[in-house]
Simulated scan of single mutants.
Amino acid sequence: MSRLKGRVTLATVAGTAGVSIATVSKVLNGRSDVSPVTRARVQEILEKHGYVGRRPETVERDTVELFYQGIVNAYSVEVIQGVVDAGQAAGVDVVLNAHPPHPQTTSSGRAARWIREVIAAGRRAAIGITSELADADLAALSRARLPLVVVDPANIPQPDVTSVGSTNFAGGMAATQHLLSLGHRRIAYVGGPPTSGCNQARMSGFRSAMEAVGAPVPRDYIWLSDFLYDDGLAGGAALLDLADRPSAIFAGSDEAALGVLEAARARGLRVPEDLSVVGFDDTQIARLASPPLTTVKQPLRDMGAVALRTALQLAAGEKVASHHVELATTLIIRGSAAPNRIRSVS
């Protein structure tokens, strides 16, 4: 089946399928009075040509689709709570979808099917958390005229995608400067995916602070994987098993920092006496850690709230001041970092 040229409408889909426009409409709306063979034929054409439709003009109550790829963790819970709280204040319902199409595992047709479902449900806008969006997803959302806001996008933010984040570069620099002020020079970084925009900014802040004092960063002092506990555990183990191990580790998330703490404990190292650790996020687990985690606070709930309000602005046809908003980070000093006591390693 060749792809239709130009704008795909209900009429063109109906003509290609050899059915009426009303039948195509029934398929889109999930009506049961369509034969399985006809439904399959129409669905195939809709997916082949990426038809997503438009949001119904009248819905009972405004709703926003909130989607998240991956395991819900301490970070995402805070952002989700911020979106939900802001939605309640605005009189808008928030629907969480934890399993939307992923660009690496789904076709553009299946992505379009998910967006059609979102449109049919009458969502006013969509908000993604740390989500990676393929060009096909963005094109389908654009055709559907569904506003999109992404919080901490997993890939580098595109100029035409509205996003919300924090001052990751400044936060990475502040964390590293704190460790430097404690006399540490052998400082390693355990971070997230290399393609992640927030990870790149945090790592750049780390490198900038190190370069400012002439402290070298050996290649094996950088460990990039993801922001989860197991990644911090693996990264911490690799770094602490080096012959010239670091005296401090800056982790790109609180969860990864907890993995580093466990790697240190498993090797009989005390924190902060033998190893200083700084995290990023200031989620609840940072306060519950032993010792309590020194970390860079992201205003995660505020980020979620800003995303919700921005999405509603776009849905109302209003212009936003910037396609990318960054909220300020703050260093929170607790008990996991202390003056450097390691002078040499035998």
Rank of each mutant, 00 (worst) to 15 (best):
L293I: 04
L308Q: 07
L242F: 02
V345L: 14
L269S: 01
H49I: 00
R245Q: 07
V42L: 00
T310G: 03
I45F: 01
P292N: 04
A74I: 00
A154S: 06
A237C: 12
G70V: 00
G87Q: 05
E47Q: 13
L233S: 09
Q200P: 02
L233R: 11
A136T: 12
V8C: 07
A89G: 14
G232M: 09
D281Y: 03
T106R: 13
P101G: 02
L293S: 03
G122S: 01
K319W: 10
Q81G: 08
D231A: 15
P193R: 11
L66A: 11
S276M: 02
G91E: 06
N97V: 01
V13M: 07
P56K: 01
V84M: 09
A338F: 04
H324M: 05
N97D: 15
S346V: 15
A175S: 09
P216R: 14
A17V: 04
V118L: 11
E326R: 13
I119S: 00
D62N: 10
A125Y: 04
G259M: 06
D220L: 01
G82L: 07
G214R: 10
L300T: 02
V164S: 03
A307V: 06
R116T: 08
V190A: 10
V278P: 03
I129V: 13
Y189H: 14
Q43R: 10
V149Y: 06
L179N: 07
G214L: 08
A338G: 02
A243V: 08
A125L: 09
P147G: 06
P157M: 09
A140D: 04
D281K: 07
L331S: 04
R207N: 11
D62Y: 08
L66H: 13
S166Y: 11
G183E: 05
L228D: 10
A237V: 08
D241E: 14
D135E: 14
E326V: 08
N340A: 12
R55V: 14
S20M: 11
A126R: 06
A139F: 12
S131A: 14
A328F: 12
V77G: 01
G6N: 08
R343P: 04
A256T: 09
S208M: 12
P101K: 01
S32H: 13
R54Q: 15
T130L: 08
V260R: 12
V92D: 02
P100F: 00
L288D: 15
L46V: 02
Q158V: 09
G317R: 05
L240W: 06
A212G: 10
G172T: 08
W114Q: 07
D254M: 04
A201R: 10
E60T: 14
E132Q: 15
A238M: 13
R61Y: 11
E211G: 15
V320I: 08
